[in-house]
Amino acid sequence: MSGADTVVWMVQNAGSEAGSREVRVCGPALGPDLRLARLDEERLGPYSPGIYAEALSALIAGERGEERERRTIVLLPHTYQVAEFAPLLAVQLGAAYIPSICGAGREAEGGGLRFRRAILQAKLQAEVRPRARTVVATLQSGAFGSDEPPASPTRVVDVCLPADMERSHERQILGREAAGAGGVDLAGAERIVTAGRGVGGADQVSVAADLASALGAELGASRPVVDNGWLPREHQVGSSGHTVAPSLYVALGVSGSIQHLMGMSGSRVIVAINKDPEAPIFSVAHYGIVGDLHEVAPALTRLLNERAARRRS
């Protein structure tokens, strides 16, 4: 089974490159009939989840209606915008919804579709089988090999507003603003030391700050650290904060939620220090130390400071 009975829609947001390559890498594993649907604010107007879902569903349902015997798979990058409207699309299409997948393919025997996704905060992975003939799946950022060449679609369609659709005023955009004050340049940083929940409290963040200063690094924070008020939001690394790709990323007591991994897994060298050997952060780390960060990080800080002092003298 090669998926000849399957139509694969690869959805791309013209306003953002995020995830479009991954969608094109994943598509060919599911079938050769690859169609590209482009979403574009110029054509659809300002983003609203209802409008984007409806415009896309009108296109896909329209073509599906002409090819009833075929299966339809819709692949979208798992951006914040997509994750908001994709479930609406799935309900409209009567489709199975499989969000934030990290793997997709067909069974060797029978050619059945299988998707993989992380569950329980990335502590386990589930293999999921769709029961509906139409599938809407979103792709976890970074999970689909950047080594493979992206496929070229057999057809490209710009998504338009259906003629009979009215723009509703139920949801209006009043404005946009930056989430936090400035002063922290995580996106441009060459080195980052990130404090995770494992540092233990606001009064213990200094263990990470000291190491950051010994390394000449910016100080990052995981979401729980920011949510608990241990560090301000502008320090937050992850898909809801800053996406970073420094040369050196040191994670102190960060367990490694999917959102965090999405925000930092592109770093050149990742060091993880955590007392839990099963923490998901170790799956992306190049160097891992299983141990008490309150012992290891101060030792590291001291050795780095001694090393710097030796070099100066």
Binding site: A90, A95, A96, Y97, I98, R114, A118, I119, A122, K123, L124, Q125, A126, E127, V128, R129, P130, R131, A132, I270, P280, F282, S283, V284, A285, H286, Y287, G288
Partner: peptide, 16 residues
């Protein structure tokens, strides 16, 4: 619309 067919531990390490 979906059914879980298996649950596994995540693959370990990128060769770290």
């Amino acid at each position: 619309g979906i059914e879980t067919t298996a649950i596994r531990l995540p693959p370990t390490g990128g060769g770290g």
